[in-house]
Computed example of a mutant assay.
Amino acid sequence: MEEQPFQEVRDACGDPWLGISSQALEKHQSWSKRQAISHEPINCKGEKLTGSLFRPFLAATDMQLLRLFIEGLDTIAYWYRSGRLIPGILPMPTHAIASSRYIDAMSELILNSRLPVGLVAVGIQSIPTTDISDACKEGLLRLRRLDVLLHHLNFVGDIEALQWIKEMQLEGVHIDMS
Rank of each mutant, 00 (worst) to 15 (best):
D158P: 01
P41K: 10
L53H: 03
L170Y: 05
E160Y: 09
V148Q: 05
Q29E: 12
F54S: 03
H174P: 05
L119F: 06
P5T: 05
I175F: 11
L150A: 01
R81I: 07
A135T: 00
S107M: 06
A96C: 07
Q29S: 14
A59Q: 14
S99D: 09
P41L: 09
F57R: 01
D131L: 08
V9S: 08
C13Y: 14
E138A: 07
Q169A: 11
G139Q: 01
Q163N: 11
S30A: 15
L153D: 04
I97V: 11
E8T: 15
G83C: 01
I127Q: 02
S52G: 14
A161G: 05
L143W: 04
L58G: 00
L90Y: 05
D15V: 12
E26Y: 09
R55F: 06
Y78T: 15
D11T: 00
I110P: 00
I70D: 13
A60F: 01
M1I: 11
M92E: 07
L85K: 15
P91T: 08
I89R: 13
R142S: 02
I165R: 04
I103T: 00
L115K: 04
P116A: 05
L68H: 03
M63E: 15
I103S: 02
I20M: 06
S133N: 10
P16E: 06
